[in-house]
Design a protein around this nucleic acid. Sequence first.
DNA 1: GCCAACGTTGGC
DNA 2: GCCAACGTTGGC
Length: 156
Amino acid sequence: MPNYWLIKSEPSAFSIDDLARSPDKTTCWEGVRNYQARNFLQAMAVGDFAFFYHSQADPPAIVGIVEVVKAAYPDHFAWEARHKYFDENSSKQNPRWVMVDVRLKTILPAPLSLARLRGVKGLETMELLRKGSRLSVQPVREKEWKCILRLSQSRD
DNA sequence: GCCAACGTTGGC
DNA sequence: GCCAACGTTGGC
């Protein structure tokens, strides 16, 4: 059984269309610099699925589905001195940050906006909808996953 | 641009 | 270990 996740990206930095244009529609998910989010990355397995969410967007929305194609490995950008993701506390001997590889599976026919998701029965306790939630990598319950899939397939 | 809600840092 | 100051995220 796969596990389900949600990963956020600002489309001005990397959008789902950018992912669609990437080689093999695959990218490494670098730059996570939050311990809780990192721990979720480490918990991901090949074959897990994640919603691709556009934050800082108009509107903020779930826009697609990706599949984990490579499990967690060191985020080498943390070792590059002039890189924006550089972290002097991460060494090759003891990497502090990790990334996974994800491949685009589906672009939703219509984005599911945050506003739309709020108030949907069955999503009351979803992390994304929690007040003050900022986690850029978060788990999604199977029940929530299926509920959102159904929403994405209904038209209205 | 504003601001609430976090997370991190560092003095003590 | 506490907590104020600061930095960041992200909706609005």
